[in-house]
């Protein structure tokens, strides 16, 4: 399920990032762990229940200014849907 642009995704209960001092940064969840790098880490760090999907997309547009914005937004929505289906985030 893809989120609305106004949704504010946050990590689901029992899901958290490992400590900053531990590399690689990893999303820890029941029985599983997901290594994060580049954009996936930036996205997960913004899933704090404060930022809207639209705001996350805008931050990514600024970070990856060479890529086409619509493409970034589509990728973001797809990634958030994947995390949601894995019960890593709520929105």
């Amino acid at each position: 399920m893809k989120p609305e642009l106004t949704a504010t995704p946050r990590l689901a209960p029992g899901v958290r990032l490992n400590d900053k001092s531990q590399l690689p940064r990893t999303l820890l969840m029941p029985e599983r762990a997901l290594r994060l790098n580049g954009p996936s880490l930036e996205i997960v760090q913004l899933c704090d229940g404060q930022h809207t999907v639209q705001q996350i997309a805008e931050k990514l547009h600024a970070l990856y200014s060479k890529a086409e914005p619509q493409r970034i937004t589509d990728d973001l929505l797809g990634y958030l849907a994947l995390l949601h289906d894995q019960r890593a985030i709520d929105f």
Partner: peptide, 11 residues
């Protein structure tokens, strides 16, 4: 029922 009061992963 108790688990509903806490923010913790549940399986």
């Amino acid at each position: 029922q108790w688990l509903k009061k806490h923010r913790v992963g549940v399986t």
